[in-house]
Simulated assay, not measured.
Amino acid sequence: MAKTLGTGRHRALIALLIAKRESAGLTQTELAAKLGEYQSFVARLESGQRRVDVVEFLELADLLGFDPHEALDRLSRIKE
């Protein structure tokens, strides 16, 4: 399997998460607190230095108020 960090889909995922956090009116620090993590955890996700696993993705969708199925459908249509 090829590396996924930095691919078009990974960049689109990051952009989606940033946009959803901002539209929820949350800072990185506030989102981190809701996740029980440090701000640096969110910063690493949003800078593309860290992958988002499925369970984290579902928790982020719940906290940020977006449909994970719809988001994955959109991401699946992105060609590398």
Rank of each mutant, 00 (worst) to 15 (best):
R9Y: 12
T7A: 05
H10Y: 03
G48K: 13
T27V: 11
A19N: 12
G6A: 06
D67H: 06
S40E: 15
R50L: 07
F66K: 10
S40Q: 14
G36C: 11
L35T: 03
T7P: 12
T4N: 00
L17T: 12
E59W: 11
Q39E: 01
A15Q: 01
A15P: 11
R51N: 13
T4C: 06
V52F: 04
D53N: 13
E46V: 04
A12N: 03
R11W: 06
L45R: 01
A15D: 02
A15C: 03
D73N: 03
V54G: 04
H10L: 04
R50F: 05
T27I: 01
D73S: 02
A71V: 00
H69F: 00
L64I: 02
E80N: 04
D73T: 13
A71N: 05
Q39I: 05
H10K: 04
F66L: 02
A24V: 09
T4W: 10
G65E: 04
F66P: 10
E59A: 09
A15M: 07
L45C: 12
R50K: 05
E30K: 09
Q39W: 06
D67P: 03
A12W: 00
S23C: 02
D62I: 04
R77D: 05
L72I: 10
L75D: 08
Q39L: 12
Q28D: 03
R9M: 09
P68F: 00
S23Q: 07
V54C: 10
R51A: 00
L13S: 06
I78S: 14
H69G: 08
L45I: 14
A32T: 01
E22A: 09
H69C: 02
R50W: 01
E80V: 03
L72S: 03
Q28F: 05
V42S: 10
D62S: 06
T7L: 05
A24N: 07
D53C: 06
K3L: 09
A71D: 00
R51V: 08
L45P: 01
G48M: 11
R44V: 15
F57N: 09
L13D: 04
V55K: 11
D73V: 07
A33L: 12
H69K: 08
R51M: 12
